[in-house]
């Protein structure tokens, strides 16, 4: 395995259950992160709906995969950027999102927030700074 660590930015723009993009993206993220790369996620447009709290799919016969975002901290995914403007347009605030954390091994497993709100300008630099951008 190569020892070069690249920065991957996964851009998530689709709502979770109407199409398969969100679930496919999550599976690719899990695989990529298992190979110890620098993996970051950006949720924008309807992608912000992927990480809303309180999803209950019991009545639609689909698997609720939102709890899996909570495991990403264990996979060393520390940065989950969320587009501020996309949230506002959809009548959501950060309090409507899952409480996603990662644990800092160097600070005795201190819990830190993974979600970072970003504006359009910051999103431009995120995409420029990444080695690989994967859009779903």
């Amino acid at each position: 395995m190569s020892s070069v660590i690249k920065q991957f930015l996964y851009v998530n723009r689709k709502a979770p259950y109407g199409t398969v993009y969100a679930l496919e993206s999550l599976e690719v993220v899990l695989i990529g992160a298992a190979f110890e790369q620098d993996v970051r996620l950006l949720f924008m447009d309807d992608g912000v709906f992927q990480i809303t709290k309180g999803q209950d799919t019991a009545d639609i016969g689909m698997k609720n995969f939102s709890p899996t975002y909570g495991a990403l901290g264990d996979y060393d995914v520390k940065y989950m950027y969320v587009c501020k403007q996309s949230l506002e347009e959809r009548g959501l605030t950060v309090d409507d999102l899952l409480d996603l954390k990662w644990e800092d091994e160097d600070e005795d497993w201190a819990e830190k927030d993974s979600i970072i709100l970003v504006d359009r300008e910051e999103m431009k630099s995120l995409m420029t700074d990444a080695d690989v951008v994967l859009s779903f």
Partner: peptide, 20 residues
């Protein structure tokens, strides 16, 4: 782990979490 996150962890994640 599965009950909480709906996935089985990768080996690296499993070893780290077991260690903790």
């Amino acid at each position: 782990y599965y009950d909480e996150y709906q996935i089985a962890p990768a080996v690296r994640v499993l070893t780290k979490a077991i260690g903790k």
